[in-house]
Computed example of a mutant assay.
Amino acid sequence: MVEISPVVTKKVIYKITYPNGKIYIGKDLTNSLTYFGSVNDALVKMDFSEEQRKHFTITKEILFESESIEEVNRIEAKLIVQYEANNPEKGYNQWPKFLG
């Protein structure tokens, strides 16, 4: 008899880089290839013209992987601050609040 071990889905923290160089850091507890976060659409739209939106390329980079939700939750905020993704001049994260 063959034993099938349960599949453990890694949880990830990713960095999205937009064409203007600004970034967004988020977490994905399912490690989906097609998930690109819940960035505030209005903030991103303000930075791109209608013409620029017609051909738009972003990059998704995995910064951290873990099997632990608690660890991913803890590390996410640290990476947002480390990369200054919450600085409106550098990124689109609105939490934790940027203190300048």
Rank of each mutant, 00 (worst) to 15 (best):
M1T: 15
V2P: 08
V2M: 14
E3N: 11
I4D: 00
S5F: 10
K10R: 00
K10Q: 06
K10G: 03
K11D: 04
K11P: 06
V12F: 01
V12H: 00
I13L: 02
I13T: 03
I13H: 01
I13K: 00
Y14M: 09
Y14G: 06
Y14P: 00
K15W: 09
T17I: 06
Y18H: 14
Y18E: 11
Y18R: 07
P19I: 09
K22R: 11
K22M: 05
I23E: 12
Y24E: 14
Y24V: 09
I25M: 10
I25G: 12
I25Y: 08
D28C: 04
L29P: 12
L29F: 15
N31I: 02
N31G: 00
S32Q: 15
S32H: 12
T34P: 03
T34W: 04
T34H: 14
F36D: 10
G37H: 04
S38K: 11
S38Y: 07
V39L: 03
V39G: 01
D41L: 10
D41S: 10
A42M: 05
L43H: 09
L43W: 03
V44S: 02
V44Y: 02
M46C: 06
M46V: 08
D47G: 07
F48W: 11
E50K: 06
E50V: 07
E51K: 12
R53N: 04
K54V: 01
K54Q: 07
K54E: 02
H55A: 06
F56D: 01
T57G: 05
T59L: 03
K60D: 06
E61M: 13
E61F: 10
F64V: 00
F64N: 07
F64P: 01
E65F: 02
S66A: 08
S66I: 01
E67N: 11
E67Y: 02
S68K: 02
S68N: 11
S68V: 00
S68W: 00
S68T: 05
E70G: 03
E71V: 00
N73I: 05
R74V: 01
I75M: 12
E76C: 04
A77V: 09
A77R: 08
L79T: 11
V81L: 15
V81S: 09
Q82M: 14
Y83S: 10
E84H: 15
E84P: 01
A85H: 13
N86Q: 14
N87Q: 12
P88L: 10
E89S: 13
K90T: 13
N93M: 11
Q94V: 15
W95E: 12
P96N: 02
P96Y: 01
P96W: 00
K97T: 15
F98I: 06
